[in-house]
Write a protein that binds this DNA or RNA. Structure first.
Length: 267
DNA sequence: AACCCGGGGGC
DNA sequence: GCCCCAGGGTT
């Protein structure tokens, strides 16, 4: 849930989620439609399906116990380098480099004197971070937590609170006068209005509003933007159909067959 | 390496 | 309005 989503927005959904599905086996047996509805508006709904797949693999192949090694975690669906390291370190106390956006930024500033880390995370950056990880596992966990929290609360991307920073005396970026981001030109903020992502989001919101067993919408309605808009007025009339097809391909939407052909609902 | 994938809140 | 957020998977 925390992948690309702020903690404050995750917390209430997470609490309700664990009340409803306390263990992997509970989530594994849920209906995907209910999982997607419980995910609500956290965004990137494919994460919800992968989390359930993850629970199913853990239930079927790991006796219901979350793997306790980075390699074991990394093999699970929806678990990448970051999440594998975070769970290994924070849940199991193992030594791992938890390189999230916050830690990358703190290291880029403190060690390299740069405003922000490079757009893509490469091997060199990972290995350099690993070289700074304390050898003792318990200490390494504190190192990860400390840098992550520092990045989230003090060394923030937009308005860092340098006067309150415990690293202010040793920060290369602050010492250099907080120079601007040299990669600014290459960072392209993702468009939103009028994109397929926005249309996909609207379709999912529409389907979430209906009971899971109900065939909730026709292709025609969804082609109208799931809210009754005039398709002819859209800049790209083919976009809703394309977005719907991509949702079906992703397993986020179920397409009816037979007498239900042309109707859609959550899977 | 580049691209795709949501949605909300801070400023 | 723009920017950012405890990234992952595919091409």
């Amino acid at each position: 849930m925390l992948q690309q989503t702020p903690v404050a927005r995750v917390e209430p959904v997470w609490r309700a989620w664990l009340t409803r599905w306390p263990a992997p086996a509970d989530l594994a047996g849920a209906r995907p439609a209910e999982v997607l509805r419980a995910w609500d508006r956290l965004g990137y709904p494919r994460r919800a399906l992968r989390l359930q797949e993850c629970a199913q693999v853990i239930t079927a192949e790991h006796d219901g116990v979350v793997p306790d090694t980075e390699a074991g975690l990394l093999a699970l669906p929806g678990i990448g380098r970051y999440t594998a390291a975070a769970v290994a370190a924070f849940a199991y106390g193992r030594s791992a480099v938890v390189l999230d956006t916050n830690v990358r930024r703190v290291l880029a500033r403190a060690l390299d004197g740069r405003a922000l880390p490079p757009p893509t995370l490469g091997r060199a950056e990972r290995e350099r971070a690993a070289s700074h990880l304390p050898a003792d596992p318990a200490t390494s966990v504190r190192w990860n937590v400390g840098l992550m929290e520092l990045g989230a609360l003090v060394c923030t991307a937009r308005s860092p609170r340098c006067t309150q920073c415990p690293l202010r005396e040793q920060c290369a970026w602050l010492r250099a006068g907080r120079p601007a981001d040299e990669h600014a030109a290459r960072r392209r903020t993702q468009a939103w209005h009028g994109t397929d992502r926005q249309v996909r989001g609207r379709i999912m919101a529409h389907l979430r509003a209906h009971p899971p067993e109900e065939w909730a919408a026709t292709a025609e309605l969804l082609a109208a933007g799931a809210d009754g808009a005039d398709p002819g007025a859209l800049p790209d009339p083919g976009q809703p159909t394309r977005a719907l097809a991509s949702l079906v391909a992703d397993g986020l939407v179920s397409a009816g067959t037979g007498v239900q052909a042309g109707w859609y609902r959550l899977p």
